[in-house]
């Protein structure tokens, strides 16, 4: 059975938990007065702590922009974002979140272990706090033994695993992921999806995950935040009623197909 929940500001959607990210009436406009483009308009949503939320929508709906607003990479025009009660800038300096890009963005002259350690070497004025063991993280993403490899010696999937390990080194409370597996082949993507769910359950990190793959959004998310375009706004914030832990086999169940069918219908309504 499919459970959907309409967005209700200030009301937790799942069982009562602390709010990790609270977005209120957020608008983002680009360009000058003559040539203004509204990327996001009046977006409000609460992300509970520990949740795995996937963000889906047609291209131009501003899902990446929304993620970049939380990460303090895009200037907010109106409204507010609070990350554990702090502004995005304060949260960034406190290392509350880590970001994983579509491109692995590894430093090509550094080997795997030094790339994973990068966040510990920069941002001296930021509160770095305690951190995870890089070797344990590499073991978690299945790269033990490749510590000294250079990025160009790794496959695309392996590079993205290194990027995930690097993001986790500061023990972030939130992981922001912008289509991290978008450039990978389907088999690699499936395997990394499964591993990401395992990492999520091992670390308890809140994850915000942008994708444009319907099966990926349904497989990974506890909730799916559906956005529509022109201007970018919330279409629906729905719960995915599939039990955890999920394995790839769940994608063959009737329930899963029901979720993806519903998402596809919503996506078509957005066009």
């Amino acid at each position: 059975m499919l459970g959907t929940a309409k967005l209700m500001p200030n009301v937790p959607l799942t069982e009562p938990a602390a709010t990790a990210v609270s977005i209120r009436n957020l608008s983002v406009r680009f360009g000058d007065r003559n040539n203004e483009f509204t990327a996001l308009s009046d977006v409000s949503v609460d992300i509970p702590e520990g949740a795995f939320v996937t963000m889906l929508g047609p291209s131009g709906c501003g899902k990446s922009t929304l993620l970049r607003c939380v990460a303090d990479l895009v200037h907010i025009s109106d409204g507010s974002i609070s990350v554990f009660g702090r502004s995005p800038q304060q949260a960034r300096e406190a290392r509350d979140f880590a970001f994983v890009f579509q491109d692995a963005t590894l430093l090509p002259w550094r080997n795997v272990i030094d790339n994973v350690r990068l966040p510990l070497e920069v941002g001296k004025h930021a509160q770095t706090g305690d951190h995870a063991d890089p070797h344990e993280l590499l073991a978690m993403v299945g790269l033990t033994g490749r510590e000294n490899a250079l990025p160009h010696e790794l496959s695309g999937g392996m590079r993205q695993r290194v990027a995930i390990a690097r993001a986790l080194i500061t023990r972030p409370r939130i992981l922001l992921m912008d289509e991290p597996f978008g450039a990978l082949d389907e088999i690699t993507r499936d395997r990394l999806n499964e591993e990401l769910l395992r990492v999520w359950q091992e670390t308890g990190t809140t994850i915000l995950f942008v994708t444009h793959s319907i099966p990926e959004a349904a497989f990974l998310g506890q909730n799916v935040l559906m956005l529509q375009a022109h201007p970018g706004r919330v279409k629906e914030f729905m719960k995915v009623d599939l039990p955890f832990p999920r394995s790839l086999a769940v994608r063959d169940t009737v329930e899963f197909i029901g979720v993806t069918a519903h998402l596809r219908r919503l996506l078509e309504e957005c066009l």
Binding site: R68, A71, D72, L73, R92, E93, R95, F97, A98, F99, F101, Q102, D103, T105, L107, P108, W109, L118, P119, E121, V122, G123, K124, H125, A126
Partner: peptide, 24 residues
């Protein structure tokens, strides 16, 4: 994307110069 990463890590301009710009 590399510069975005350094910004998320709150890196200073000097750190970006030494860790990213000069090596690249």
């Amino acid at each position: 994307a590399m510069l975005d990463l350094m910004r998320v890590l709150s890196a200073s301009n000097t750190e970006i110069l030494w860790k990213v710009r000069l090596p690249s």
